[in-house]
Structures are given as C-alpha cells and as structure tokens.
C-alpha cells in the first residue's frame, strides 16, 4: 500500500509535492506523473493512513543546534526541556504527540539504520534533506521539516551518503519502553 501524504493543518510548507515525492522506477526513483501525484497526495488530511508533513520554526532549529553546542562544549545540553518545548509547539498546532510518547535525539551515521519501532513522527534537524522510503515512494523532508508517520507503516530512513543525519524521533510510549530520553545512535 502506498501511503497517502498531506500537509498537516495549521502548517505552511514552502515547496510543492513534486519537489518532495519520488516514485520507484525499475532500480531508481523518478518524479511522479500528475496522476501518480494525485493518488499519493490527500488534500484533506485527517485519515489515520496519512503521512502528515509539518515544519519546525526557525527559532526551534536554532535552539536545537545551540543545545548540541552546549552539550559538546559544557556537557549541559538540555534535551529534556527542548523535547518538552517541541511537544508544546506540536500541541499548539493541534498535532499533539500521544501523551506517553518519547522523544529521541538521533544521529544517523553513514550506513546507519534507524529503528522504525513505534515511530509516530520524525523531524529533520540536519542541514540536508532526509529521505524516507516506502516500497514504491520516497519522501524528501527538507531541513526543519517533519512528518507524522503511521506507526503501522513507518517506512525506512535512508542512510546518509556523506554527512550524518540529525533528527528527533517521536515514538509511541509502549514501543519506547526502556529507551532513554536522550540517545545517540
């Protein structure tokens, strides 16, 4: 089943779907035709099956990197507070993560894999696009963009080719039991 994509209500994303989606074509990927795009994109989000795209404000991206800088230099980066603010932002936007969801800070190295268990959402904090693959379709998340994912069909985060991916994964609580709030992978 191809997932249906939509922009989450109360969010504005800059570029169009033709810049975000690619469809499988033999061994590679190509831009979707209009009819394929129409089948992939849902204009009225709300369905459980929809992968909902959203964007994180610039001030939160700045804070994310400041936090990493503090962690690197003084060991005092406060991801717990940052995650709480991220949760508050998504709740304001009426896209609240489940109350028992946990937030993981992930750094995906070249060739590394991201555990898809219980993924509810993924936010790209890198300076490069993040690619998520499903069997027939690839989603390109620009820097600062996120996606609420159907946990039953979370797809696969494509390993980066050069620079590591930096992202925040939001996981359903039952799937995240035993995980630390702060995690390097």
């Amino acid at each position: 089943m191809k997932p249906a994509f939509a922009i989450a209500p109360n969010f504005h994303l800059g570029s169009g779907w033709s810049d975000r989606l690619l469809v499988a074509d033999n061994e590679g990927w190509r831009a979707p035709r209009e009819d394929e795009l129409a089948a992939l994109v849902v204009e009225t989000p709300g369905s459980d099956a929809a992968a909902l795209l959203f964007a994180i404000p610039a001030h939160m991206r700045t804070r994310f990197w400041d936090m990493l800088g503090e962690e690197a230099t003084q060991g005092s980066g406060d991801f717990v507070t940052f995650a709480a603010d991220l949760r508050q932002f998504l709740a304001f936007k009426e896209l609240p993560p489940p109350t028992d969801a946990t937030f993981d800070l992930l750094v995906q190295d070249v060739g590394g894999a991201v555990d898809p268990a219980g993924l509810w959402g993924l936010i790209n904090f890198s300076d490069e696009p993040l690619l998520l693959d499903w069997p027939d379709v690839r989603l390109r998340l620009s820097p600062g963009e996120g996606c609420r994912i159907d946990p039953r069909d979370p797809g696969r985060v494509v390993p980066p080719a050069e620079e590591p991916n930096a992202m925040v994964a939001i996981r359903l609580g039952s799937e995240a039991d035993g995980r630390p709030e702060k995690l390097d992978s």
């Binding site: 109360n10 404000p57 610039a58």
Partner: peptide
C-alpha cells in the same frame, strides 16, 4: 495558527 512563523519572520 502561526505565532511561531510570525515570530521567526520578525527575528529574521
């Protein structure tokens, strides 16, 4: 629905 986006705009 866009206080953060407005704030970003003013800061930028």
């Amino acid at each position: 629905a866009y206080p953060d986006e407005l704030f970003d705009f003013f800061v930028e």
